[in-house]
Design a protein around this nucleic acid. Structure first.
Lengths: 135, 135
DNA sequence: CTTTTATATGTCTTGACACGTATATGCGCT
DNA sequence: AGCGCATATACGTGTCAAGACATATAAAAG
């Protein structure tokens, strides 16, 4: 469970993180606000701490947890590569061009001779492209 | 399942998504580049399709998959709430502003410092110890 | 038509993980 | 000392999803 992606896949963990946005919180406060059993909270916090999402300072018997930025930056960095995919009109243009021509100069390292007798865009509607399967 | 976070928790799915950044790819191309069994690719693509990460067009017997923006936007929206937590770190902010110059820009950085006093322990705080049933 | 290519889906197994419950550790107070 | 509060951890259990393998479907090539 090493990757930041798996960490935030858990809804309760995301809830905890969102709680901590406003300010640092103790385990008990999180427990009350999320109405979640304390062992659950502690365990999730443990995961979050190990992953670097939060850190805790000791205040007597309680621990005050607060956010740490690095994993979020990592997430943002990953999202970065997709950003131009959705950034407004540029995206539409690119997709349009992509559809017009086969990936020519784009070849990665695996070049497969795609011989295509019939051209693309078969006239028939694509049925299973979207939903219904079941044959 | 079904949340975008769980979708991208899977490393192979993230690999597929990253592959599709450059251009649309057929299942076979993905299979070869990632060196993973074809049924695996198809299954992951199925999940990604259902979640709206990708869409496919039919080209004869093959399917050409390409990215769709919405789930990424959703992720970005979630990250938004944490951004001020790390905007103290310069490079992330820079990288972000780099992409944000066009008109219709959406405000992303706020300078409202929410400073919270660390609360001292509430004496005799009577919380109702809600024992409500969990989900 | 038969074979080959491309992709989808079904089934079964296995392993990870989240949860509940119980218990342990630590601290402050009287 | 003992008690109560706050948090952590250990254990047993059920669920769900990913992988492997086989098979189904569909279109193209021969």
């Amino acid at each position: 469970m090493e990757s930041v992606f798996e960490i935030i896949a858990e809804p309760n963990r995301r809830a905890i993180l969102s709680l901590l946005v406003s300010s640092q919180q103790s385990v008990g406060e999180i427990e009350r606000q999320l109405r979640m059993p304390q062992p659950s909270v502690s365990k999730h916090l443990r995961v979050l701490r190990d992953a670097g999402f939060v850190e805790a300072t000791v205040d007597a018997q309680r621990r005050l947890y607060r956010l740490k930025p690095k994993p979020f930056q990592e997430l943002d960095g990953w999202l970065e590569q997709f950003r131009r995919t959705w950034t407004a009109h540029v995206d539409a243009l690119e997709r349009y061009l992509d559809r017009m021509e086969p990936p020519a100069g784009r070849a990665m390292y695996r070049e497969t001779p795609i011989k295509r007798k019939t051209r693309k865009r078969p006239r028939g509607a694509n049925r299973e492209t979207d939903k219904g399967e079941r044959k």
